[in-house]
């Protein structure tokens, strides 16, 4: 009797594990708008999700990077500046784990936007990337207009970055890593200063990769 009970317990544990893994889809963040269309006399309601809008930045190699370079890619975005003495080093140390896990995968990218473009020129960003041990095109350090970067961060990446002269380095910002899927939708936000959350991010990237791509036109 006891034996049967323990077997049942093990089975139940397995079953619950399986349903957890099987039903593992990531939420879609941001606003959503229902759109009702009439096709062939039939009305259908579809949901339009908030997406990251078109942008144009320059990477550490001096190349222009826009949303076109990211079409069909899963990417992680964060906001930093090279002279940051507070949370950036620990964020970059954790992001290095993401980089090392996916650097051989052409479908995964990391974008680090500088929030101090005045100081962080292309030359400064290149040197920073070299010192961090980054090469190739997996991890881009992007520089653009300050207003554009802040707007993109606040409105689209749900990250609050704002200037504050009282904190060391002159900037205060939240160390979020934001996960964006192939359709430019935000699918997750992780505290980049916490190694466990960054491990979750790595796991979630793998989940996203396994997600079926919807057929074109849908």
């Amino acid at each position: 009797m006891k034996k049967i009970f323990s077997i049942a317990l093990v089975l139940a544990a397995f079953a619950s594990c399986k349903s957890n893994n099987g039903g593992n889809t990531l939420p879609v963040y941001g606003k959503r708008t229902p759109v009702t269309k009439t096709v062939n006399g039939q009305t259908a309601t579809d949901t339009i999700y908030q997406t990251i809008p078109a942008f144009k930045f320059v990477n550490q190699y001096g190349d222009s990077i826009s949303e076109k370079n990211l079409s069909g890619k899963i990417y992680v975005a964060d906001f930093f500046f090279t002279s940051c003495p507070s949370i950036c080093p620990v964020m970059q140390r954790n992001m290095l784990n993401v980089y090392n896990t996916f650097k051989a995968d052409p479908d995964i990218k990391i974008l680090s936007f500088t929030i101090d473009p005045k100081y962080d020129s292309v030359k400064v960003l290149k040197k920073y990337a070299d010192k961090l041990g980054i090469s190739g095109d997996t991890w881009w350090f992007l520089q653009g207009k300050k207003d554009t970067t802040y707007k993109l961060a606040e409105k689209n990446y749900l990250v609050a970055v704002s200037e504050d002269k009282t904190t060391p380095g002159g900037y205060v910002h939240q160390g979020y890593f934001v996960l964006v899927d192939k359709e430019k939708r935000v699918r997750g936000a992780y505290d980049g200063t916490q190694p466990e959350q960054v491990n979750q991010l790595i796991a979630d990237i793998k989940t996203l990769k396994a997600e079926p791509t919807p057929a074109a036109g849908q």
Binding site: P89, V90, Q92, R93, Y128, D130, K131, L132, G133
Partner: peptide, 16 residues
């Protein structure tokens, strides 16, 4: 100190 120099004093590649 740990944010920059790391939990094991490892620093950060060529940066720290």
């Amino acid at each position: 100190c740990q944010n920059c120099h790391g939990a094991h004093g490892e620093g950060l590649n060529g940066l720290i």
